[in-house]
Design a protein around this nucleic acid. Structure first.
Lengths: 165, 165
DNA sequence: CGCGTCTTTCAGAAACTTGTGAAGTTAAGG
DNA sequence: CCTTAACTTCACAAGTTTCTGAAAGACGCG
């Protein structure tokens, strides 16, 4: 079905994957255009595309690409690189992109923890509700700690499986 | 600041916590009304509220409560209980609610994995893009496996810390 | 078996989100 | 120093989402 060594990749297959995986990400709460841009980059051979290429692949305006990329950069999900000698910019996903993304998730959990601490304070640590919040807080603190260890194990596992790079 | 053993809880403190934590959940991708309902339940002493109580606490219509609860039940984040001898329904969060929620997250990852496998197939496993997708897939498969073990450890940790309940 | 209460469903209005086109900004190259 | 290419920003329009009010549906109880 695929033609690995042919010069041109099957645009249909690429588009099919981009749209279907992006749809899953959208369903999980990610804004539509960032999701599409991100998956398009993920499915590119170079792991990087220019604004123009993204616009054509996704059939959207430069403005839409710009907005999506800004979002993704804030989330540390793409990095921008200027090719020297051109104002053309390339947007790139790294191979350990998801590792980064989950690390980012960590920051979200930290904010949740703060809100929960304030809740325990405000409601009283000895009230039933306060105790429930405290237990929830303990859960996140636990997950938080585990997350780092899991990531450590992933790096080891990845280097063993794919060779470090 | 709080008055633990007083009959009435400080409605201001409750409301402040509900709205601030719910806002965090919304920012993380959860629909607004389900988030508010969920946090309201979390912050209730009984861990359960009726539709009418929720409507009053959040200042929304019964219809909004109904919609939010349906969403939360689908996500296995609340359970409904009929009090016998009344059509009044109570909506309840469990103490290991978040444990359940993360387990649910597992199902999402499984869908992502399927989309990625199709992508690897469609683009060709030997293409650069295909290899990147395959590595992403491997990451999720790894996380997936770890998740179960982390949950297992949490249960042990919780029982030790809070006494099993 | 019908009443009264609670919940759900449905259609519509309001609010927000999201993508476009056009003007503006920056920087390379002649 | 001007031209030109590329990205960004802004205001607006289209499309969704989301909540409400009203009506319909369930169900225990008398």
């Amino acid at each position: 079905m695929a033609e690995p060594s042919a010069a041109g990749r099957d645009p249909g297959a690429v588009s099919a994957f981009v749209e279907s995986f992006a749809a899953q990400l959208v369903e999980a709460g990610m804004p539509r255009m960032p999701a599409r841009v991100f998956v398009a980059l993920l499915a590119s051979d170079a792991g990087a595309m220019t604004s123009a290429e993204l616009g054509e692949q996704l059939q959207v305006s430069p403005a839409a690409v710009s907005g999506a990329v800004r979002y993704l950069a804030q989330q540390h999900m793409v990095s921008r690189e200027r090719e020297p000698g051109s104002r053309r910019e390339r947007y790139r996903v790294h191979s350990n992109q998801w590792y980064e993304a989950l690390t980012n998730r960590d920051a979200v959990i930290k904010r949740w923890e703060r809100a929960l601490r304030e809740g325990v304070d405000g409601l009283g640590a000895e009230t039933p509700a306060g105790r429930r919040l405290a237990e929830t807080l303990a859960f996140f603190e636990f997950i938080d700690g585990e997350l780092m260890e899991v990531m450590e194990r992933w790096r080891a596992h990845r280097d063993k499986t794919f060779g470090q790079g």
